[in-house]
């Protein structure tokens, strides 16, 4: 496979994953805005922070209100992480790697782009928002389904999956980091209504609120949430799950090509770091420090994969 094709697949799936994450984040913000009164500016500011877009949003001069924030995250072409930007970038990459995709995956991606571009042609009115957000998730699910149902399990598949999980791990770690102070065990905050809402934001933005309640019997504790999102290998958006998947796909590449690269050492170290730790140890070291280190390792892994498999040169 061409290095450029591998890169295109990787980015196609990173962008698709990002579009879905952004949609989930909006959903969490919207739901919280609906279910409580007051402090809505703070809530939307926190959504913008979680999207890692505070500077970009400030640059656009938008106010911290539902309408403009949602429009920025859904449709703003100046915002590279908006759903529209992501879907367009994913589709451009898919066109570039068209020969590596089955017709089903290409058509699902092309349709995803056509449907969402149409749905996002104009600002989305509040009554239509739940429908549009559902549409974004569904279109993503169709691409994922086509990928699973029609693609050979070879290097093409591996690069697509590595892109997905690298983006997802980055997203989960960022959400946690923006909210790390909420999760820090602090006497004055635990149990207050502020905390509950913030936790809910965290869990909802990774679509984990039901799973978490189901697993813990509804006991919401900062440690419990952090453990769930960092170390629980059953949770498909946790860091441990994503890292485990990347290790698997990079391992397949190593065997298929019969070539070991520096990225294999990096993923092994990342995985060993998660496998060999506990949530207590993480809190002891400092959750923020832990997450910063993870984000930086994850980014370094991405850069190493790009080099090792000659994405650009």
């Amino acid at each position: 496979m061409l290095g450029r094709t591998a890169g295109g697949l990787y980015w196609m799936f990173r962008y698709l994953e990002r579009s879905e994450n952004t949609a989930r984040l909006i959903e969490a913000g919207f739901r919280i805005a609906l279910t409580r009164s007051g402090r809505s500016a703070e809530d939307w500011a926190s959504v913008i922070d979680t999207a890692g877009a505070r500077a970009a949003y400030a640059g656009r001069g938008g106010r911290m209100e539902g309408g403009p924030v949602i429009d920025f995250l859904l449709r703003d072409r100046q915002n590279p992480s908006s759903v529209l930007s992501c879907v367009e970038a994913a589709r451009a990459n898919a066109r570039m790697v068209r020969t590596a995709l089955t017709r089903e995956v290409w058509e699902a991606t092309n349709e995803c782009w056509m449907v969402l571009r149409e749905a996002l042609r104009r600002p989305v009115r509040e009554p239509d928002l739940p429908g549009v957000l559902g549409l974004i998730r569904r279109q993503n699910a169709l691409v994922r389904g086509a990928l699973h149902g029609s693609m050979l399990r070879n290097d093409v598949f591996d690069f697509a999956r590595i892109g997905t999980f690298l983006e997802r791990a980055d997203n989960t770690a960022r959400i946690l980091d923006v909210k790390y102070y909420v999760l820090l065990p602090s006497v004055s905050h635990v149990g207050s209504s502020l905390d509950n809402v913030q936790w809910e934001t965290v869990l909802r933005s990774v679509a984990g609120e039901r799973a978490y309640r189901w697993l813990t019997g509804g006991e919401v504790t900062p440690r419990g949430i952090a453990d769930f999102l960092i170390l629980d290998g059953r949770m498909p958006r946790s860091l441990a799950f994503c890292v485990g998947k990347m290790a698997g796909n990079l391992g397949y590449l190593e065997r298929q090509y019969d070539m070991r690269h520096p990225c294999h050492d990096r993923i092994a170290a990342l995985k060993a770091g998660l496998d060999g730790t506990t949530i207590e140890a993480i809190f002891e070291r400092g959750l923020h420090e832990f997450l910063l280190a993870f984000l930086s390792d994850n980014a370094a892994l991405s850069a190493q994969i790009e080099r090792d498999y000659r994405f650009y040169g």
Partner: peptide, 28 residues
Amino acid sequence: ADNMGAELVEGSDLRVVDGRIAMRTTRG
């Protein structure tokens, strides 16, 4: 390219290597 089972390459994927035109793949 797809229907022939051939690679679709751009100029930036190609270079001269040992007297041949070669494409940059994930394996070299």
